[in-house]
Simulated assay, not measured.
Amino acid sequence: MASSTPVVIYPPDEDGGRRIRIDGTILGRAYSVKDVAAFAQEAGLHDWDEMDVVRTSLIEWRDGGPDVWTH
């Protein structure tokens, strides 16, 4: 079943990176909330910053929220 949220942050890998998918496309790995905001901005969410990333319901955080960056 596909996610209904346009942004999915996958669980941290061994290096502490989390894959980020926006609108069905994997854009890369984020290592912090700041990285997630940068990916969102590149994907067209130009007004997003770190606080938007933490507060929005548009992000599905898998196996931990925005404060989890270790495997």
Rank of each mutant, 00 (worst) to 15 (best):
S3V: 12
T25K: 07
V53A: 05
E60Q: 07
Y10D: 14
R19M: 05
E50F: 09
Q41V: 14
H46Y: 10
A2S: 09
E50T: 15
S3R: 05
T5L: 14
F39Y: 14
D35L: 12
K34N: 11
L58V: 06
S3I: 06
R29L: 11
P66V: 12
V68N: 03
H71P: 15
A38D: 04
P11E: 08
K34H: 10
G28V: 04
D67N: 11
V7F: 01
L27R: 01
V8M: 08
G28T: 04
M51I: 15
M51T: 12
S57T: 14
R29F: 15
S4N: 01
M1R: 01
A30Q: 03
W69Q: 10
D63I: 09
M51L: 12
V36R: 01
I26K: 01
G65F: 02
Y31T: 00
R18E: 07
H71D: 13
A40G: 12
Y10P: 14
I22C: 05
M51Y: 06
I20C: 11
L45T: 13
K34T: 15
P66A: 10
A30H: 00
E14R: 02
T56R: 00
T25W: 02
D52N: 15
V33Q: 03
R18K: 06
T25L: 09
Q41S: 10
V54K: 08
T70P: 07
V8L: 08
I22R: 02
I9K: 00
D13I: 10
S4T: 05
V68P: 01
E42D: 14
L58Q: 08
L58A: 15
E42S: 10
A2C: 15
G65A: 04
V53F: 10
A30G: 08
D47C: 09
S32R: 00
M1K: 02
D63Q: 10
S4C: 01
P6K: 00
E60K: 07
A40Y: 02
R29W: 07
I22Y: 04
R21K: 03
R19G: 14
A37V: 08
V7Y: 02
E60H: 06
T56L: 03
D23S: 12
E50N: 13
D63S: 13
G17D: 04
S57I: 13
A43N: 03
D15M: 03
V8F: 06
H46K: 07
D47Y: 13
H71E: 08
E14V: 08
D63A: 11
T70G: 06
A43Y: 02
P66R: 00
T25E: 14
T70N: 02
R55L: 13
F39W: 09
